[in-house]
Amino acid sequence: MLADGYEIRALRRGDGAALAAAFRRNREHLAPWDPERPDEFYTDAGQEAEVGRNLMQAEQGRSYLWLLTYGDVVVGRIMLNNIVRGILQTGTVGYWIDHEHLGRGLATAAVEHVAREATRLGLHRLEAGTMPHNAASQAVLRRSGFTEYGTAERFLYLRGAWRDHVLFQRILHDDPPGNPVP
Rank of each mutant, 00 (worst) to 15 (best):
A20H: 04
D4F: 00
L11G: 08
R9C: 14
E7I: 04
R37M: 09
G16N: 06
L30N: 14
E7Y: 00
L2Y: 03
P35V: 04
L11E: 06
H29D: 09
L2F: 02
L2I: 06
R25A: 15
N26Y: 03
D4W: 01
G14R: 02
W33A: 11
R25F: 04
D34N: 08
E40K: 00
G5C: 08
A31V: 05
L11I: 09
D15W: 00
N26W: 03
D15N: 11
E36V: 10
D15S: 08
H29K: 04
D34P: 00
L2R: 01
A20Y: 01
Y6Q: 05
A20G: 02
P32T: 06
A21R: 14
Y6V: 13
E36W: 02
P35S: 14
G16K: 01
I8G: 08
Y6S: 11
L19I: 14
D4G: 13
A3T: 09
R9K: 07
P38E: 13
R27E: 15
L11Q: 04
A17G: 05
G5N: 10
G5A: 13
G14C: 07
E7S: 15
A17E: 12
L11M: 11
L11A: 07
A10M: 11
P32G: 11
G5D: 08
G14P: 10
R9P: 13
D34M: 12
E28N: 06
G14D: 06
R25Y: 05
E7R: 15
D34K: 00
G16P: 15
G5I: 11
A21P: 07
E7P: 04
L19H: 02
G5K: 06
A21G: 08
I8Q: 05
R25I: 01
N26K: 07
H29L: 09
A21W: 00
R25S: 11
N26P: 12
G14Y: 06
P38H: 10
D34Y: 03
R37G: 01
A10E: 14
G5V: 05
P38Y: 11
A10Q: 13
R37H: 13
R37D: 03
E36C: 01
A22N: 03
R24G: 12
G16Q: 05
E28S: 13
A21I: 09
L30I: 10
A20D: 01
A22S: 09
R27K: 15
P32W: 01
R13L: 12
D34H: 04
A17K: 12
R37A: 04
D39M: 01
I8A: 03
R13T: 06
E7T: 14
W33Y: 09
A21E: 15
G16R: 01
F23S: 02
E28A: 15
P38M: 09
R25C: 11
A20N: 03
A22R: 06
A18N: 05
L2E: 05
D4R: 14
P35E: 11
R9T: 12
A3F: 02
R27M: 10
P35Q: 05
A21L: 13
D15K: 00
R27W: 05
P38F: 13
P35K: 06
G14F: 03
G16L: 05
F23N: 10
I8K: 01
E28Y: 01
A21N: 07
P32V: 07
R12S: 14
E40M: 00
D34G: 00
D4L: 09
H29W: 15
D39T: 08
A31C: 03
L19P: 10
A10W: 03
A20M: 00
R12V: 12
F23Y: 15
R24M: 12
H29Y: 10
H29T: 07
D39I: 02
